[in-house]
Amino acid sequence: MNVDISGIPVNILGLIGLGCISGFLSGFFGIGGGPLITPILNILFGIPFPICIGSTLSRTVGTSFSTVLRFWKFGDIDPKLALMIVGGNFVGIELGVYLLDWLDKLGQVNVGGQSISALQYYLQWLFFGVLITVSGLILIESLIHRRKGVHRQPRGLLRGFRIPPYVSFPKIGVRQISLPATVYSALVIGVFTGLLGIGGGILFVPLLIYGYGVETHAAVGTTSLIVLFSATYGTITHAMRGNVDLWLVVFLLVGSTICAQIGVIANQRIESDSIRFYFAFIVLIVAGMIGFNLLRAIYG
């Protein structure tokens, strides 16, 4: 039972299965699953990267909407912070999509004696780098946490920047922070969203906690609103370039909606330290898959 996605026949059950895995991960770890799904869609199903990125962003709009409603009810979202940084984030997304177009225009590169798509080759390296870095940082953080025993709220590295004007978010623990440092850091993450279709749990939550010094619950809640905005904008930008496949979005959403609840139930039964460790492990597996694919391309 196949469906045609940009000229490639793809197994429907396989797509629903992948959606199910991503839904379980989002319920279990509280992340969208974009950084994991996008390379898997490309490597396992052979779907071109731009379609994977555009469609994954579109799926994220659906999943993040329900998350926003849940966090809004708990009062964990700071709308001022979310709205303030989406301006810079949107500019970053535009730059990311522009970079994607530029990579696409590079055509073919010669790797290991064979000609492969430059877009495919460079994006796999980028994904590999991002995933290895993220899993490494999570492992270091969880090891430090285990050694110290007590969790202390980080002060926020970007609070050290003394470039006016300054803004404050007293309800989420940020007394004063430089506006340029706030918006330009969101711009950099926007580039990753436009180029790779990632940004939410994997980049924004650490930025808010370690960069701005936002309290953890508020960081996760506010990120959900930022992700809703950025995924919506990213979907529109990619859709205008024909990078969103509706069938792909539908099958991923069906799988993820069903399995997200199972992930939430599993989350309740495991300690948060172990959850972070498992997450780093899964990210490493996906990075390993990409690394293997790259080695196969280089050495034939």
Partner: peptide, 24 residues
């Protein structure tokens, strides 16, 4: 990005002072 951030900050500060309540 700076102009947008400053505008949102101004709007929220204005609303908070006008209504006397936090927008959070």
């Amino acid at each position: 990005p700076i102009a947008w951030g400053a505008l949102i900050n101004w709007i929220f500060t204005f609303l908070e002072r006008r209504t006397g309540r936090s927008t959070h």
